[in-house]
Every structure is written in structure tokens, then in C-alpha cells.
């Protein structure tokens, strides 16, 4: 019936967010918790502005991953989706918004799932985090955003056309991967220290 899968996939993505949002509303999060989320989203969204003098340096994904590691999968998902949504407030929403929310949210969620336990025990290996960051950037984020491009631009998809789009997206994804790894190597430990201090001060 439909050759254009773009609309359907968007609807599916949006529907998949809803359970998490309902969970968030049900939980009635503490003032400190939502304050921390808002602060992390702000840091994530504006991290690019801090490094504006270094071209191609995009630390957004790295900070989403760090948020997930420090505060768990749920918060990671929230910081990821909101960072995508709000950074598009500044640069303009578009057909990509929903996809970016999915991509960043998923990365934050997985980071939390894999690492937040280790983080709480104080056994966090920066090397492992970096490897995860690279995979997250190239496979998850890159893969989702390339799928978006393919779905939007090509109604009838063939394996070939998909492959061509992924291949053309690879350089950009690799740059993002390298940036993410660099940022994670630089900030994972220091951010973990800072988060620990805030949590202590908050009595969390």
C-alpha cells in the first residue's frame, strides 16, 4: 500500500517514546533529579559552542553517553532525546528531529544499561567506554540517521541504494566516532567525579 516508509517509521518511533514519557510522569521525579536532567541537557546541547574554535568537533553524543553512565539508562534516554529536541529548537526542527531523538536517546539508554552499574561500583574502564562510544557513533547514531536519509529520499528502496547511502555517510560517521572517543577519553573520569560530588551534595 505505501511505498513511502518515512511516515510509518516516524509514527512508530513517536509511539515508542510514549511509554517512557508516561513512566516519567508517573514516577513524579524529585526536584533535584529533573534539575540535574535539565542541567545535563544544557551542557550537552551547548558543548559544541564551547569547542567552537575546533572545526568538526561535536561532543554532543559523548555527553549523552556520559549522562547515561552517571545516572542510569532512564536518565540517559531522557537526556539524549531532550538534547536532540532542544538543540533543534536552536537550529530549527525538521523531518530529522524524531530520528535524532531516537538515535541519541538510544545511545544514552544503552550507555546507562551497560555501564551505570560499573560506575556505581567505581569500576569504570575508560577504554571500554571509548569502544562503546565509537560503536554508538558509527553504528547506532550513524546507522539511524542514514536510515532516515534513505527513507526520506528514496521511496522504493533496494539493498543497493541503502548501501550507497550508508557508504556515503561513513566519513561523517567516522569523524563523529573519533570526536566521541576523544571526548569520552577526556571527560568520562572528570565528569564522573563532578557527578559524584553533586549527588553527594544533593543527598542522592
Amino acid at each position: 500500500m505505501f511505498e513511502n516508509y518515512y511516515l510509518i517509521s516516524c509514527i512508530i518511533i513517536i509511539l515508542s517514546f510514549i511509554p517512557f514519557m508516561v513512566m516519567l510522569e508517573r514516577r513524579k521525579p524529585h526536584a533535584r533529579e529533573i534539575m540535574l536532567v535539565a542541567v545535563l541537557v544544557t551542557i550537552t546541547v551547548l558543548s559544541r559552542a564551547v569547542f567552537f574554535m575546533i572545526p568538526f568537533f561535536k561532543p554532543i553524543l559523548a555527553f549523552v553517553i556520559i549522562s547515561g553512565i552517571g545516572l542510569g539508562a532512564r536518565t540517559g534516554l531522557l537526556v539524549g532525546t531532550l538534547s536532540a529536541f532542544i538543540s533543534n529548537f536552536m537550529f530549527g526542527q525538521g523531518p530529522w528531529t524524531v530520528w535524532q531523538m531516537l538515535a541519541l536517546g538510544l545511545c544514552g539508554f544503552l550507555a546507562g544499561l551497560i555501564f551505570s552499574g560499573r560506575y556505581d561500583e567505581g569500576k569504570l574502564h575508560t577504554v571500554l567506554v571509548c569502544i562503546f562510544g565509537f560503536i554508538a557513533a558509527v553504528v547506532i547514531y550513524g546507522g539511524i540517521m542514514d536510515t532516515y536519509t534513505a527513507l526520506l529520499y528514496m521511496g522504493n528502496m533496494t539493498k543497493q541504494s541503502f548501501f550507497a547511502i550508508y557508504l556515503s555517510g561513513l566519513p561523517v560517521n567516522l569523524i563523529l566516532g573519533i570526536c566521541t572517543v576523544l571526548c569520552l577519553a577526556l571527560f568520562t573520569k572528570s565528569m564522573a567525579r563532578k557527578l559524584r560530588r553533586v549527588k553527594y551534595k544533593y543527598n542522592m
Partner: peptide, 29 residues
């Protein structure tokens, strides 16, 4: 290097944001 400048500035901003957030959540409560 510029990268090191960036790291220092980023650390300063993260620290500042976190510290201010504590007061802010008090104001909410």
C-alpha cells in the same frame, strides 16, 4: 593548545552548572 583551552573551559562550565543547580532545586522546593 586550543583543545586544552577547550577542556579547561568545558570543565569550568560543567562545575558551574552543577553547583548552581543545587541552589536552583532548593528554590523549586
Amino acid at each position: 593548545s586550543r583543545l586544552k583551552d577547550g577542556i579547561d573551559i568545558m570543565n569550568s562550565m560543567i562545575m558551574w552548572s552543577f553547583e548552581k543547580s543545587i541552589d536552583r532545586s532548593d528554590s523549586m522546593r
